[in-house]
Amino acid sequence: MLEIKNLHAKIAENGTEILKGITLTVPKGEVHAIMGPNGSGKSTLAYVLAGRSDYEVTSGDILWNGESILELSPDERAAAGVFLAFQYPMEIPGVSTMTFLRTSVNATRKKRGQKEYSTPEFMKIARAAALHLGVKDDMLKRALNVGFSGGEKKRMEVLQMALLEPTLCVLDETDSGLDIDAIKIVSEGANKLRGPDKAMLVITHYQRLLNYITPDKVHVLAHGRIHKTGGKELALELEKTGYAEFTGKAA
């Protein structure tokens, strides 16, 4: 279970407070959506969950399976089961995708006390997982994300998510920049990772993605706080009314 308790966070460099007291619980087996206007703090929440040092948590706590993860480094969080699918995945020139995936999976397995894969073992596993997501063999040989299209990058994120076997998945605007076909492929990949011991947080600006990944609950984030929580129908409602109600509220 993910428990976010009265979380406040600011930008470390200039002290601007972005998250102003978020309280949220996602039980295992559930998928929650976070929707909200631009600048509401959605991506900041995603980064803070993954441990990006550009943000500083000033008060509150984040508990995963009952334990605070605030003191954990990003790689320790990954080992603890946290996975963030980036809105803008980084391009890493000079590092082949396959090498990156193997390093990532083996480092995580090592920390989890699992046996590391040999190179041939891993290549088999990675290729099989890639096939499911329509990631071509050729992409695995190329430098990570370099020259990949928007859709290819997002598929690569979901491939990493599948290989790292996380228990808490945070999807940050995974639909942005994707056409409908790509959204379908990526959503199918994400849906496969739903399960009774997994919690998922889907961050999105538009309702569209939620047609494919059906949430158990929808939270509306504006001005760094959760303003409304409802069922999946809340997303459809927002599609009609927009965010004016929430942006107006705190202005």
Binding site: D75, R77, A78, V105, T108, L164
Partner: peptide, 22 residues
Amino acid sequence: MMFYLRSRGIPEDQARAMLIES
């Protein structure tokens, strides 16, 4: 880039070495 690699479970030293090698 460091954050991206570390969020994938790669420890700091290893992530740094990967980026320098790249």
